[in-house]
Design a binder for these strands. Sequence first.
DNA 1: TAGTGGTCTAGACCACCCA
DNA 2: GGGTGGTCTAGACCACTAC
Lengths: 248, 248
Amino acid sequence: MGTTQLETAPEPKYWHLKTVLSDALDTEFAVGEILPNERDLAARFGVARATLRQALEQLELEGRLQRRRGVGTTVAPPRLGVAVDPARHTWPGAAGDDWQPVAASETDEVPAAVARLLESAPGETVHVVRRSRVSAGQPVAAELLYVRTDTVPDCVDAAAVAPDGHAHAVLRALQALDLDGQDRTVELGSARAEDARQLDRLPGSPVLVVTTRYVSRGRTAAVAVSTYRADTCRLTFGERTAQPVLAG
Amino acid sequence: MGTTQLETAPEPKYWHLKTVLSDALDTEFAVGEILPNERDLAARFGVARATLRQALEQLELEGRLQRRRGVGTTVAPPRLGVAVDPARHTWPGAAGDDWQPVAASETDEVPAAVARLLESAPGETVHVVRRSRVSAGQPVAAELLYVRTDTVPDCVDAAAVAPDGHAHAVLRALQALDLDGQDRTVELGSARAEDARQLDRLPGSPVLVVTTRYVSRGRTAAVAVSTYRADTCRLTFGERTAQPVLAG
DNA sequence: TAGTGGTCTAGACCACCCA
DNA sequence: GGGTGGTCTAGACCACTAC
């Protein structure tokens, strides 16, 4: 055994590539700068395009790169810190929140997980309000807010009154109720078609799914499913919002 | 124009495959059951293995599947709800927390983002404690806890005293301090080699990175970077821990 | 040793953006 | 129309697990 090989870890090519590219991004590129195209990069590193893409995908996942079909690959700015409920225990739609209602309707198509949280019977209809959150000029999150019909009884006819009045009627009705509290979960998901469109991403892009439960009079009155772009967002809890990022 | 084609959305094959597989998982498979291998599945659906894998990767990302090299692909159980600080404002290592110290040392290799939070000078050494979190019998998170040396001055020599005493000495010293508060961020990352090993995953697997800042006497005393398995974990904030999942 | 998922290749075509 | 990233193919070999 002449060859002393300590830890001949056969590091995958794409992994090594990712490291090299990551270092290059730190030292040789500025935010917003366009990288060479994938075919050229692959040739330069002597790998197949698929392998190069595997490295780029990881870097995009970590928020280091931004890729747009027909345009190119650019160096992404640091992730945007977005506050998830700034410790204000308020209903959605309260004065000063960062969401804009987009549409609203009444439906009985409630995802099973949401129906369970709402304690709604199968087939029971609920209000559903689609909202959008914009921060620093770009869309960061899409939301579906599910509200039990019986918690906002005054809204039953309000929908018919104004063309876009339904969303506002529901949100306004919520403000009048007591809010006992809220709790929240965060998990990884992939953007469904409609959310992806709203977030200006491709379907299947990684997203952070925040599920918020609003409790009133000891019962779950509403459930919000908020879908944040995982590539560009850093969710913040508490006071801090400024600092950049650690990922990867 | 005889062909009336409303929205001929050319849905990618892997996307459609994902939908089909997802439905099949709901109706025809039980948790823990082993799927046919990738080559057979690809043949059955008439696609290349790479395409089939693209669908499987998404389903794994959403926590629906679990894949292990040399073994096979199994149906994953619902994601595990793990509480991220149950609203108890305590130092890490407080009685009853779910973390186990693994190792500790003093180092000056502090990630830039952490150094910024700690307000530590470049080259300044800090204590770093590696911890592990196990829930329901499986590892769910790996953590690196960075503590300013000057906030726990009694630890300088404690490290030499006991073989594994360093970690405990640092954690014990923290308990004696006043804790003004903490704040937190959550973002998507990919597991680095050491974390991946600790989490029983491959390097690069998607993880949820929780960065917690501990403030004492108006200064940042410690920063914890906790890396949770994104495929198996749902982070919970607040009281709720039980309910299953919505993702994808 | 046989079977699994993980990596990699060298092509091809498509959808999209912009000049 | 030319260039970009996105999808897809049909192979090959490797690393790991279990028998």
